[in-house]
Simulated scan of single mutants.
Amino acid sequence: MKGLTMLKKIISTAVMASSATFTMQAQADVSATVTLVSDYVYNGVSSTDGEPTLQGSVDWYNDAGFYAGAWASGLDEDSYAGAEIEIDYYAGYAGSISDSLGYDVGYAFYTYPGADDADGEYNYGELYGALTFNENTTAKLLYSDNYFGDVGSSLILYVSHTLSLPNEFSLTLEASHTKLLEDGGDMYFGPDAGDDSYNHWGASLAKSVAGFDLALSVTDTNIEDWGDIADARAVFSVSRSF
């Protein structure tokens, strides 16, 4: 199950490495990132059923604040109606209100090539907006009118705070609340049809070493009826940007 936002870029356990960028045109840059992750987890739920996978992204951005990109990851095909890969596209604008307050607004579209349409339409779009205070505290809101295909409209609230630690380590604490805004059919987060929301929380310890970004994360949810994919877990990521 997915939704990130480019939230997925904020709460994904994939680690963003320090970027080496090249100039596309005046005041515009492109970067590419490759990540090996021990488990693709979004909002506390595994999309690879606990298995490792490769992830990658290509991002364009300019000094005016506009950006666009694409991100891809492997999937557990049994959980995604035969789809073995997720490819997401996104575009937005980021700026600042003051020296201590920044914002980010945009649109993301999530696709699952190869998914069997007989199991429903998986592709969907999502609007998002975020505020960041002092570059380390973020609140983000994501809205979809067709969450995960045929489920219906949804709202996700995400918050995170990053602490700088000795020896150039950083610790990020995060939490999110996912809410279905209408009847979601079989997409419920517990044994009862009324379980239309769930909470996720996690922590990630990160450090850059020799041009690679490393992170060890722990995550959990209060979902009761999804088996192992929503249980507490630890995730390791290593990432490099070019």
Rank of each mutant, 00 (worst) to 15 (best):
T23N: 10
M24A: 14
Q25W: 11
Q25V: 10
A26I: 10
A26R: 10
A26D: 14
Q27M: 10
A28C: 06
A28P: 02
A28R: 07
D29W: 04
V30M: 14
V30W: 15
S31L: 09
S31W: 08
S31C: 07
S31Y: 12
A32F: 03
A32L: 05
V34M: 10
V34R: 00
T35L: 12
T35K: 06
L36R: 08
V37A: 02
S38K: 02
S38I: 09
D39R: 04
Y40V: 08
Y40W: 11
Y40E: 08
Y40D: 06
V41Y: 11
V41I: 15
Y42M: 12
Y42N: 13
Y42Q: 11
Y42F: 15
N43G: 13
N43P: 00
G44Y: 14
S47F: 01
G50L: 09
G50M: 10
E51F: 06
P52Q: 10
T53E: 13
T53V: 13
G56I: 07
V58L: 15
D59S: 12
W60I: 03
N62F: 01
D63A: 15
A64W: 00
G65D: 02
F66W: 13
F66A: 03
Y67M: 05
W71H: 12
W71E: 02
S73D: 03
G74C: 01
D76K: 13
E77C: 03
E77W: 00
D78H: 14
